[in-house]
Amino acid sequence: MLLIHCPYCEEERPELEFRNAGEAHIARSTNIAAESDEDFEKFFFIRSNPKGVIFERWRHIHGCARFFNAARDTITDRFLLTYKAGEPKPDLEKLKADGGPAAWANRPPDQLNEKPKAKRSTKGEA
């Protein structure tokens, strides 16, 4: 079972409490009636469906009930990061560089609630 970190509950919770809610950061037009059919089609139907990191909306439906966003790798199913709705899209390059066991699934139970360590600066190191 996947453990997913809910940014509102501030801890990892079992995937059975969550529901996927489609791709994230798809902005709805402020004047949708004026959209061309082509632009509406893009907004409404076309999704990136990447092989690799995708930004998704998730809902902690059987928990705090909040929607939030997640960066997930579609190959490994690893959650790289979750963040509150409304927060900016994180830098994909930085996520890739950080890597690491973001899902924390293999950590010992007593370390499950530890926050990931900040990436150490490599400046000045050999």
Binding site: L16, E17, H62, G63, C64, P109, D110
Partner: peptide, 24 residues
């Protein structure tokens, strides 16, 4: 219920909406 109900993770006074089998 898939939540960790150990006293460390779910101490006395802890409360949560969650699932039991197929229901909330």
């Amino acid at each position: 219920c898939p939540q960790d109900l150990s006293l460390a993770a779910f101490p006395v006074g802890a409360a949560s909406r969650t699932v039991l089998g197929k229901v909330e």
